[in-house]
């Protein structure tokens, strides 16, 4: 039983990383209509930014997290303005943006490789909370608790932002129809910039937390999150962060339990079978709107 609960927490923490990443990925898709293949690199670069903030400047843990989050957000804005804004102006549609994002993915991945000297780096153990929290017979790493709490805070915060604020209403309006939103008085350009930043920052948070807790800061970090994050968005529903959060957690738990009780070889197969089943049975995911369609 102790093993079951410990693995449940391991899966929950792992799934929280997928969900955090997926929230950013889903925001870009639902608001900006971009299936952004470069999104994983935001997580990689956020982890690299956090790592070098610690390594070069010896900043404390919260500042390292902030460096990663802001770095991820700014990178997303830069990519959007250089790569996607010209396409948006020419109304080239999703395919042009997808191809552009693949180009950015390859470029940013290569640069990330050079930034890390092609090595897999790790945050120094003393630079983050690395103790175990003892809860009766259970021992839970502090970073797992931080990751789980980070997901809860982000999910609730972004859900409230989108559903309960004027900015959120503007984001939903731009996601529905950018021209109509602009005619209605929404500053679409500003909403796009804000959405890009928020998406990059959320995925950046996943990257820097993942980089710390897995002792892996490298250009491969984002690639691992990308597929699982995408699965979380599809299963959870593109336009509802609550669905992405729940689906991400479920994916993490399923992964860990399949590896523990069945076989590691079947782990990814199960994950993608679930994705396929959802795509067939419920294309809009757990919480997605029935009417949600991107042009």
């Amino acid at each position: 039983m102790q093993l079951f609960v410990e693995q449940l927490i391991n899966g929950w923490a792992l799934g929280s990383l997928y969900a955090l990443f997926g929230i950013g990925f889903g925001l870009v898709f639902s608001t900006l209509g971009i299936l952004n293949a470069a999104h994983g690199t935001y997580a990689s670069w956020a982890a690299i930014a956090g790592y070098y903030a610690v390594e070069r400047f010896g900043v404390p843990f919260p500042v390292a997290i902030a460096a990663g989050v802001i770095g991820g957000g700014l990178l997303a804005v830069v990519v959007d303005q250089i790569g996607f804004q010209p396409l948006r102006a020419k109304k080239t549609g999703m395919l042009g943006a997808l191809i552009t994002s693949i180009a950015f993915w390859i470029i940013l991945d290569s640069l990330a490789g050079f930034a890390t000297g092609q090595q897999s780096l790790a945050f120094p153990a003393a630079s983050y909370p690395n103790q175990m929290v003892v809860m009766g017979p259970l021992r839970v790493p502090q970073m797992q608790i931080i990751t789980i709490v980070a997901l809860l805070v982000c999910t609730i915060g972004i859900h409230l932002l989108i559903q309960k604020t004027r900015i959120g209403a503007a984001m939903r309006a731009v996601g529905w129809n950018e021209v109509a939103a602009a005619l209605g008085g929404v500053n679409a350009r500003m909403v796009i910039l804000l959405t890009a930043f928020l998406a990059g920052a959320t995925s950046g948070l996943a990257g820097v937390l993942g980089g710390i807790s897995t002792s892996n800061v490298s250009f491969t970090l984002g690639e691992g999150l990308m597929l699982k994050g995408f699965a979380a968005v599809v299963v959870g529903g593109y336009d509802d962060v609550r669905g992405t959060a729940i689906a991400g957690i479920c994916l993490g738990i399923i992964e860990v339990f399949v590896a523990q009780y069945i076989s590691t070889s079947f782990r990814d197969g199960f994950t993608y079978m679930l994705l396929l089943a959802f795509l067939i049975a419920r294309p809009r995911g757990l919480f997605g709107s029935a009417s949600f369609v991107r042009a």
Partner: peptide, 20 residues
């Protein structure tokens, strides 16, 4: 015997499995 894949990066769960 705990199997992992080359592309894996999170080993908390496999470590738990082996320690158990």
């Amino acid at each position: 015997v705990v199997s992992i894949l080359s592309a894996d990066t999170d080993f908390t769960a496999p470590a738990t499995q082996a320690m158990a």
